[in-house]
Design a protein around this nucleic acid. Structure first.
Lengths: 410, 410
DNA sequence: GCATTATTTTTACTGCTCGAAAAAAGGTCT
DNA sequence: AGACCTTTTTTCGAGCAGTAAAAATAATGC
């Protein structure tokens, strides 16, 4: 049972966390600016800063670099994260690729390794060992980071265990089943966090687009799979309080098209690249899906549909309808004001939009509240990485550094 | 912008709130018991209690009534809410009935008035005035409560305004459109809260069934409408952070049966009493729904289906399928461990269950995590009232009484 | 050089929780 | 009846974090 008692310790944690989080989203700032943003008094900011400086969590920036020469008064000394205060290792795993990144505490990418993944990769190597090997690699290449490495976070696809120690199911062959997060944590001695890709998309767009930072956005990935993350007023919501949803495998049509997951009628079976391709080529929708669709083949299909090809258009229509009804069903439970389509499918938004909007219009909530704004952001790599990084660093801020005991505040 | 700064004020609020909430869910208790439950030290509990006693929020119970004669040591003095510390007025509005209740701070029902509602009620009287008249009535009948009346809460059906000041849409004729909560707040000078019925069902079952108190439950009302509330690990979740969902009007079938709301294919159009009746009597599903279905007619239909009547069984099958697929779609975003069916439809759970479970089984999350437990609770009146009352009193605890400034703690 | 302006630090004070010890309130035993 | 035991409740001093206001600091402008 967690104690929710509030005492001076929790007060300090809360207010230190407030300052770190302001620094995280606003970059290096003066103490006065931080006092304004957090609502703390100048005295408290100074006191907390003294602790943070003494603990080498933050540092004063040497180059004041006044933006305007005509500023009066004592110039502010900016305070920013001390880059070497901590490092985190981030893994993004995909059906055919692993990307391992080393990031310092200020959010600067230090090192990156990319490796190809094949369906046999995890048949030959235990997932925990596979990640462990890459972690060692990162450590060897940046020895000074190895000492202060604090956390590991992995972006995954599939359904998580209740304790987030591994996956119960995943489209990545042989990845599910083992508690690889637990294994990796044991072997490395570091905390390991698993995040669903869709959830990170939501987190990432929250950080990428300042305009959307505090609004309610449903971020939908359309590509080799279909996934969704929800960011409601800056809070990530969804299954298991982990912010994950199974949007791609939400049922669209009872007994419908065969999905890669083995079930029938999932949204993904209509709206992922393989589904659109299957419809466009009039392949029966009970045919087992192709393992992977090359990017150029998908782009060619988009071009055909844009040129007016009936079959291709039909494929995108069915995809749009599946996504649209899925969104309309989601909106019976959440009320995002914006829908952001990311991934390869974002390039086809104009083809999808009519059916998406038609489906949304047929729902009561949209008739009452109006349609949400539907936007596209073709790149999904950057949001996922940024989401993974910001989520991990923010967790580090709050869990590790906000809770540090005050030394002797003389 | 809300300031999240933590200071001694917020510490007091938090810890007072902790004690009040323990008292709310555990009933009158000794200080020692409260210290154990909240995690506060005995000294803090005593100090906070002195304030609460001085402010007449709680009182010491006179009758110790030892449960066991063989108890040793100094007998505990129980502390409980002071009944007259506050009163709240609760309204439950339905298509054909208004129930106005006056409840004291300890949760005891003091007075209750029931009034019939007809489709013309709100055509003749402004909703704000209608509630105002009943409020005055309650006040006149219990003058000592009128002085310490602190809050008004209303259970409604329909889609709320973004600012919760009224309804954008409601199945209750002419109720939507006006900001009656705002009007009533202005006229009465008291805060008025609007809650969706489905949300209160979730809140109510949370309080009614201690076994479900901390688990994750989706409570589905099946009757003249279909509604759902979610309680995940004791937290109520859903649209607009208000915990509401539009489950009944989630789309089940594109271009499907005509719903009372005017849209087509809503779950309600298949699973509310009128929908089941329409299917059972082979009336075209685009026929405008009957305004109200008498209870005995619905019960007769259940009996016919239980006796094996094909047409009636078909009606319940389609209803079960609509609910089942709706739940399966909901479970792509939430993961309740229990599904609780309440309302008149709960009596037909055995008829609905096969199709509900079949639909759930066809979803990926249920294949991976297993089916949730499906239970029935035939009475829906009690959970709604209890949910409305507990939510309102808990809000009063935290908003009004936890925040009371400490007088002079001599 | 000195007033002006803005930022940062210091000082004095308040309020809260906590641990330990003391006080209170019954029952039990001789 | 009175000493003892057990459990609950209160009291007391220490410690810590926050605020407000005053003081210190560092640049600009005349």
């Amino acid at each position: 049972m967690t104690r929710n008692v509030s005492d001076s310790d929790s007060v300090r944690r809360q207010n230190r966390g407030l300052i770190l989080s302001a620094l995280r989203s606003g970059g290096p700032q003066s103490r006065t600016a931080l006092a304004g943003i957090t609502g703390l008094s100048h005295a408290s900011v100074t006191a907390i800063m003294q602790d943070l400086l003494a603990q080498r969590v933050v540092e004063e920036l040497t180059s004041p670099e006044r933006t305007d020469g005509r500023m009066r008064g004592r110039p502010a000394t900016l305070v920013g994260f001390q880059r070497a205060a901590a490092y985190v290792a981030l893994f993004e795993i995909d059906v055919n690729r692993l990307r391992a990144s080393l990031v310092d505490y200020s959010g600067v990418l230090v090192d990156r390794i990319e490796t190809a993944i094949s369906p046999s990769t995890f048949a030959e190597t235990q997932p925990g060992d596979f990640f462990g090997a890459h972690l060692d690699n990162l450590r060897e290449r940046t020895p000074q980071a190895a000492r202060t490495l604090r956390r590991i976070a992995i972006s995954v696809q599939g359904i998580l265990n209740p304790d987030n120690s591994g996956l119960k199911w995943s489209p990545i062959a042989n990845l599910a089943g083992s508690s690889f997060a637990h294994d990796l944590a044991r072997d490395s001695g570091l905390p390991v966090a698993l995040y669903k890709r869709g959830r990170l998309l939501a987190e990432g767009t929250r950080w990428l687009d300042p305009g959307l930072h505090q609004s309610s956005v449903a971020t939908v990935f359309v590509g080799s799979t279909v996934a969704m993350g929800l960011s409601l007023h800056g809070h990530i919501t969804g299954r298991s309080e982990g912010g994950a949803t199974e949007f791609g495998h939400m049922n669209h049509m009872p007994n419908g098209a065969l999905c890669r997951c083995g079930m029938r009628g999932c949204i993904e079976a209509y709206a992922a690249d393989y589904g659109i391709l299957r419809t466009s080529y009039s392949v029966p929708d009970t045919t087992p899906p192709a393992p992977a669709v090359p990017a150029q083949q998908f782009d060619a299909l988009i071009q055909r549909a844009e040129a007016g090809d009936r079959d291709a258009t039909h494929g995108f229509n069915l995809a749009g309808r599946a996504i649209g009804y899925g969104l309309s069903r989601m909106m019976a439970m959440f009320d995002p004001t914006h829908i952001l389509i990311v991934g390869p499918g974002a390039r086809a938004l104009d083809l999808l939009r009519p059916e998406v909007e038609a489906a949304l219009s047929s729902s009561l909530v949209c008739r009452i509240n109006g349609l949400p704004k539907i936007l596209a952001h073709p790149d999904e790599r950057e949001p996922i990485f940024r989401g993974l990084m910001m989520k991990t660093l923010s967790t580090l801020d709050q869990t590790d550094f906000a809770a540090l005991e005050t030394g002797s505040r003389i």
